[in-house]
Every structure is written in C-alpha cells, then in structure tokens.
Design a binder for these strands. Structure first.
Length: 600
RNA sequence: CGGGGAGUGGCUCAGCCUGGUAGAGCACCUGGUUCGGGACCAGGGGGUCGGAGGUUCAAAUCCUCUCUCCCCGACCA
C-alpha cells in the first residue's frame, strides 16, 4: 500500500509559464515529470508508474507475436555506413567519439542493429519468420523539441522488426502487428484511428500510422465519414469536382496580358474575374539529391532546380513532392536562382517556354506538374516576365514537363477517393502514437542478410519495422481526457487505480477506516493510494482530480454510518456505497472497463 | 537554421522605459484558530536579478557579447 504522505508527488497549483499544451501542463502540475533541458525530461515516481504500466501492456501484447530483445543505445558507426544512414540521418543523429577517436552514435532506431544480428545468425528459411522487438530509450536530435513529452530528444520506444522469406510472409507479420497494436492502444484507453501514411526516411512500400485526434498533434488526417477512409495528409488523395473552364480568347493560342502588380493569385483571379482554380501556380524549389556512398561512407550530395506547377487554389505537399522526385530535401529557391531558372521574378513564374530535363534531378530544371492539371484547358499562368501573364494555356499543348505526379495536399470538403463513395473528406489534427512499415529489402539487401530457401538457393529476407512511442501513449491519453482540474487515465495505465481520501486524518476512526479499506482493496489486486496527508479535504480532492487516478473513495462524515463515496474521475459522479460493498464495486467497475477494451 | 518572445527566492509575476536600500501572491518553517473542493492570523527562512564584459560615484534597470528556455516554420514515436 502506498501512502501519499510518504510519496514524492510534487503537485503544482500553477503550470510553469513555458508549458502550452494540456498534457505538458498537467504532467508538470501532477508531478509526473520535470524538465531538465529542451526535449529532455526527468520522470518522477507517478510518471514512471504510468509509463511502467504502459510498457507492461505493450510487452504482454507483443509477447504474443514476438520475442523481446534489449539492444544497446550506444552504437558503432559501421552498420549505419552499410545501410547508408550514417550520412542519411543527418543532424537528427546524436554522434560522439570514444577515447580512441572512433565514431559512435546514440540509437534513434534499430533496423541496422537488428539486421546485423539476423545476418550473423539466420541461415535457413526454416528459421523464418522472426519478429524481434525491444522496449528501449531512443535518442533523436530534433530540430525543435516541443509540447512537453510530445516531441522530445530522448524517449522510450517499443521497436519491432520482422524477417520473412517472402512478401506474403511480410503481409502476415504486418497484419499481426496491426492487430496487436490495436489491442495495445485499446487497452490503454485510447480512441485511435489507423491511417495510411508516408514511409519517409525508413524507406519501404506500405505504412500505416496509429493516430489519436487532438489539437496538440502535429499531423493532419484526412478522413471520410462515410466509408472510413483515413490517411495522413502527407499521403491522402481526393476526388476533385469539375472546374468550369475559361472560354478561349482570340485565336485560342497563349496570349500575353499585362497584369501590373498582380503577383498574387488572388489579384490575377479578381482582375480576370476567374476562379483561382483556373490559374496555374508555380512553386520553385531546390531539391537535394543524395549521391552514392563512397567507400569511406561519404557522399556527394547535389542541389537541383525544380519547378512545381499546380492549380492556383492548391497547396504543394512537400512530402509527396520529395517522393515523386526521389529527393532527400527541399528548400525554396532564392531570387537569383529564380532568375537563373526562369529568367523571371516570383509571382510571374509559368511553364510556357520553360526548358526542362527529360529525367528528374538532372543538370537543368525539373518540371513537375500536379495531376489535377490533367485535361485542363485555357488556363492562366505567369509569363516569366514582370507584370505579364499568359491566358489560353493548355497543358500538354502549350508546355510539357519532366514528370506528372500527385504533389498537392487535399483540402477539407473534397471528395473521398474511394471508388463509389460519395463522402466528403474532413481534416483533423492528430498525434502519432505508432507506425508500422513494410520495409522491403532496403536493409537486408544493403547489409547482406541472406538465407537458403527450400531449394538451397540464397535469398534475401524481406523486412518490416514497427514502432510505438511509449510516452506518446501517456501524452495522448491526457490530451484525450482532461478538464479544468486535471486529467483522467484509464485504470490500466494510471499510476494508481484508486485513491482513498481520508477527509480528516485528525479523526482516528476515519484514519483507521481508510487504512483498513486500503488493505482490502490491495488484497483484491488493485493499485491503491491512501491519501493520509494532514491537509484540508479540499486540497486532497484537488490533488486527486489533478493526478489522473480514475477512482476515488472519500472516507468522511458518513463513515461512522458505514458509508463512503465512490467518485469516478472521468464523469465526476459519485455514489454512496456501504463500506462492506465498496471493494467489490470498484473491482467490478475496473473489470468492466477491461471488458469494454476486450470487445473492441 | 530563419522569425517572434522570455530569463528576478521552489512556482506565477511586478520592478526595467526615467539607474539610487530587491518586492508581492502561492509554496516552505514555527505557533495559534480552522477542517468536504486549493483556509485564516502572527512570526520566520530563502534571491551572485541566466552568464561575461562595459558605461557610471552608483546597474535587476543603460550598452556589447554570450548561454538557456518557450512559441511559429522544414523532422517523426
């Protein structure tokens, strides 16, 4: 049994000024965490208990499909050079040298390391499939840590890796993780959605994120309320309605028009009394192409000019653009670069007469057009000349391109992309709590993992990679359920399941009743905290509400009559219960919560 | 890295513009009165004003440099 008077639970009346999001404020106020530096936090006893409970659930579920490892966080350079990520990870990797001057890094993910184990030990298809996981501290030198535990530089991750003989096997491993992840998040009391996602730096084909809707999140999710389609905005597509085309003027060929001071799309649209959808906008980038790795691990990276053209009312999706180009990084062009590539100024850039490369990221300019320009006619675009535009511009007839691709972000209200679905997309903010990838052969190939197949032939196993952010589960749970007084965690992850508040410890009878009740609850298998502090009742109620414990039992005035109050934190409802029934009632409530989870 | 903001007892902040004895509330310690939704009274402890340099008889306050943290944009669990 734990007594509040003996525990270190430093609650705060006011949130420190630099906390902005709810979970950050409450984690600090409830005495779960204290900050040590930007994106670096101390976990205090209450926080540690909650995280341990989450880890327990993750471990229990993961053990159903995989085996737990524990790899080092301090890693030598070599495996990273083999995969190409020693340079590929860039500044996000914490690097250090040992006393001999050898390069080391702090692990930010462990594909490489797991692969070294696999290639050292796996010899036969008979040993596959394997699912290996660990729960371990990760280090990432984030450009901008923020929002308390939401984005930090040191965090706990459950990372798992699968090795299969073929893609059918990978599909199965992927589905196993999908199912187990759903079970984990449900047991943690999260209302989550699984969405299609971009694979990013991990590489690979298919990936799916698990998200919890919250304004504190950093991702946007497009979803269809009708059919259940859901995708990260980085990946989402939509069905566009028809656009009313402009009527051609003159001979129907591109015609230069004088448009002084109309560098913005809104201006030119108003001037020509047309919709921005009739305009072709240009966003000019410099894209970084990674060169092949040299023997010493170094690379020659090069920058290439890219002109992206899309509908005037659409926004570039840089994630999609990166993917379409096969580039590593993007930055917008400087004025001199614009002049050099377009011979024209920003605001008046256009595709007509633009020379472009045949292949992406070549010597000259890469012209990429968005698919939403397919089949469009009589559009308006910049003339690559200050204060001039063209009209009557038809893609394909009046200009060509290096490649066409989906490079725009969908907007709320656009049509659901699923065949036959008439739904309209809605966009919401969310935080990512888990991500599962089909990696493919990226690591097994580059690092030389081979096994013999049934025919005695060497084959390369196919891999998957699967992550869960442990602290993110806690953070998302708090974001999901909080009010003015604090937050409420599911019994499964709360540091304590029930707190017994003895309203007046000066009263020996009350104190004894509380002690006895606590012992009984503990005997019933519940995590119980006895608030035996010599504080006024109000202080103890406030603290109990603050720290997220789902059930509270008030031992007060009515105790003499054999009655206590059972208060549910989530609904703030209380019922009077007989002292001899309260243990069974709390137990039943907690068990019902579990049942509810299982039925998901 | 670009842009914006902040560093003053443990927490929230005032003081800075216009240089002149470092303050309030909460928290903490002692005593008393209270005791079901963050009590009250009295007394008390605690601060190199982020750091360095400069201007000045005198710097929390003015100047220069620097460090740290937070927020907005490119990354991801």
């Amino acid at each position: 049994m734990h007594r509040w008077s003996k525990l270190f639970i430093p609650t705060l009346r006011e949130a420190p000024a630099d906390a902005e999001v709810a979970s950050h404020k409450f984690l600090l106020r409830a005495g779960y965490i204290r900050q040590l530096g930007a994106g670096i936090y101390n976990y205090l006893p209450l926080g540690q208990r909650a995280l341990n409970k989450i880890i327990g659930i993750v471990r229990e579920e993961m053990d159903k499909i995989g085996q737990e490892f524990y790899l080092p966080a301090l890693l030598p350079k070599e495996p990273w050079e083999e995969s190409g990520r020693w340079t590929g990870m860039g500044d996000n990797m914490f690097r250090l040298k040992d006393r001999k001057g050898a390069d080391l890094c702090l692990g930010m993910t462990h594909e490489e390391i797991m692969t070294t184990i696999a290639r050292g030990e796996l010899r036969s298809y008979k040993q596959l499939p394997q699912i290996w996981y660990q729960i371990q501290t990760k280090f990432r030198d984030e450009p901008r840590p923020k929002s308390g535990l939401l984005r930090v530089r040191q965090f706990i991750m459950k990372d798992a890796y699968s090795f299969d003989i073929d893609s059918a096997g990978l599909d199965k491993s992927f589905d196993l993780h999908d199912a187990v992840y759903r079970a984990i998040f449900t047991r943690c009391g999260l209302k989550f959605v699984a969405v299609e996602a971009d694979s990013g730096a991990m590489g690979g084909s298919q990936s799916q994120e698990f998200m919890v809707y919250t304004d504190a999140g950093e991702d946007f999710i497009a979803s269809c309320p009708l059919c259940g389609y859901a995708a990260n905005l980085e990946k989402a597509t939509s069905l566009l309605g028809p656009v009313e085309e402009l009527v051609a003027t003159g001979d129907g060929k591109p015609e230069e028009i004088h448009t002084p001071g109309m560098g913005a799309i809104a201006d030119i649209a108003a001037f020509l009394k047309m919709s921005p959808a009739n305009d072709i906008k240009c966003v000019a980038y410099m894209a970084l192409k990674r060169g092949p790795a040299a023997k010493d691990g170094s690379r020659k990276d090069t920058w290439h000019g890219v002109a992206a053209f899309l509908r005037g009312d659409h926004q570039v999706n840089e994630t999609k653009l990166l993917g379409a180009l096969g580039a590593a990084e993007l930055r917008t062009m400087q004025a001199e670069e614009l002049q050099q590539c377009f011979n024209g100024p920003a605001g008046y850039l256009g595709p007509v007469g633009l020379k472009h490369d045949a292949e992406p990221l070549g010597e000259g300019l890469t012209v990429i057009v968005d698919r939403a320009l397919d089949g469009r006619i009589n559009m308006v675009c910049g003339a690559n000349q200050l204060d001039y535009h063209y009209r009557n511009v038809t893609p394909g007839r009046d200009f060509t391109w290096t490649l066409a691709a989906d490079i725009r972000s969908v907007n709320e209200g656009e049509g659901c992309p699923k065949d036959g679905c008439a739904g309209k997309l809605v966009v919401g903010k969310a935080v990512e709590i888990g991500h599962i990838f089909k990696l493919g052969y990226k690591y097994s190939e580059s690092m030389g993992l081979r096994v013999l197949d049934p025919n005695g032939k060497e084959v390369t196993p196919i891999m998957g990679s699967y992550g869960i952010g442990i602290e993110r589960i806690l953070t998302a749970a708090i974001e999901q359920e909080n009010d003015a007084n604090g937050f409420c965690l599911a019994a499964s992850i709360a540091p304590f399941t029930v707190v017994i508040t003895v309203t007046n410890v000066g009263d020996a009878a009350l104190r004894e009743t509380g002690e006895k009740l606590a012992a009984e609850l503990e005997a019933a298998g519940l995590d119980v905290l006895l608030d035996d502090r010599d504080e006024r009742a109000g202080v103890k109620f406030k603290d109990a509400d603050l720290v997220g414990i789902p059930y509270r039992i008030n031992v007060g005035k009515k105790a003499a009559a054999g009655q206590v109050e059972l208060v549910a934190r989530s609904t703030s409802t209380s019922v009077d219960v007989g002292l001899n029934e309260v243990v069974a009632l709390v137990k039943r409530r907690v068990d019902e919560e579990k049942l509810l989870e299982d039925s998901h």
